[in-house]
Computed example of a mutant assay.
Amino acid sequence: MSEQYKPINWNKIEDAIDKATWEKLTEQFWLDTRIPLSNDLDDWRKMTKAEHNLVGKVFGGLTLLDTLQSQDGMTSLKENIRTQQEEAVLNNIEFMESVHAKSYSSIFETLNTEAEINEIFAWAETDEFLQYKAQKINDIYHNGTPLQRKIASVFLETFLFYSGFYTPLYYLGHNKLNNVAEIIKLILRDESVHGTYIGYKFQLGFNELSETEQADLKMWMYDLVFDLYSNEEKYTHELYDEIGWTESVLTFLRYNANKALMNLGQDPLFPDGAEDVNSVVMNGISTTTSNHDFFSQVGNGYRLGEVEVMSDEDYNF
């Protein structure tokens, strides 16, 4: 007789973090269709061609990375789960990554012409530095060990996304594109939970390794950070040199690379702290939203899963 199929029992929890994460993610469920993006059109019309180009490319890049996470990332992580509830949580994360990817298309549909949208997606499919990081992470998802896959996932969610997040957060800090930024804050809130949860699962496995195995994996991990950051420097120069924000974005990236390492239970690598990041961007992360009824489109926040103030503690359970 074949092995018995086991129903998932949420009344018998092996790991309390699974249940807590499931509840957190379902409480903060949201959809892009409830954000009135058209309210940002006045701001958009006043922005320069260089700014339009930047916004299009950063969101094109984020669309590609969220697609990678939803189509390959979570599938690879589900191959090595500790509990049935963990797979349920990863299913939730997989769906929300698809919501994130779709959200950028809603932004494009509101702000851009069809020709501009086609140009943005063509750029995302061919840009050397964007494709490098996507292919690097995807190769680990398909060929890495279970713990290496978790490292790649945390680096993607807590580090590599942030070269794109900088732009809407900067504009939010200057009271521009507020509804676009609302979506980004909702995505940020999700990613902070995703990164800490997968980082926690990594630490459980890491702590079971021998000292030699831990040392080898840490060397691999820090080599990967250096490689990804080197590529991210080139990507950031490509996107931000024209508008003059490059060095500020790189500081933000180093800060979030440290956050990714901390999610994995490791020591930070770079000297950059929150105090070194552009205060306008940090204020943008910390700005709360106005609430409204989930079933109306009045206002730009949610009562169901309110956007909360982001802080360093959001990166930890």
Rank of each mutant, 00 (worst) to 15 (best):
Q214E: 07
I17M: 12
T287H: 09
Y166M: 05
Y200I: 01
T236F: 04
G205E: 02
Y315G: 04
L64G: 05
S106E: 06
N91Q: 11
D272S: 13
Q69P: 03
P146D: 00
Q71Y: 12
G195I: 01
N9K: 10
G60R: 06
A257D: 02
T75S: 12
Y132K: 08
N231Q: 06
E125I: 08
P168Y: 04
E23Q: 15
N278Y: 09
Y222P: 05
E97T: 10
K176W: 02
L111W: 08
T48L: 04
E233L: 15
N138C: 08
Y229I: 09
R189G: 00
L111F: 14
E14S: 15
Q214K: 15
Y132G: 02
E94K: 14
M262I: 15
Y255K: 03
L62P: 03
W123F: 08
Y197F: 10
N80L: 05
S210H: 06
V281M: 03
P36W: 09
D223I: 04
K24I: 06
E157W: 10
E116V: 05
Q85C: 04
K12A: 13
S38A: 13
K176P: 03
V225P: 05
A101D: 02
N143P: 02
A20R: 11
Y162N: 04
E97R: 11
Y197V: 07
F270K: 06
L209T: 01
F226V: 13
N258Y: 00
R254P: 00
T158Q: 14
Q135D: 11
E313C: 08
A215F: 08
L169R: 02
L264V: 07
M96W: 12
T75C: 07
T75Y: 13
E313A: 15
E119L: 10
H100V: 05
I117Y: 11
S103Y: 06
G305A: 01
R189T: 03
G205F: 07
H52E: 02
E27C: 10
F202P: 00
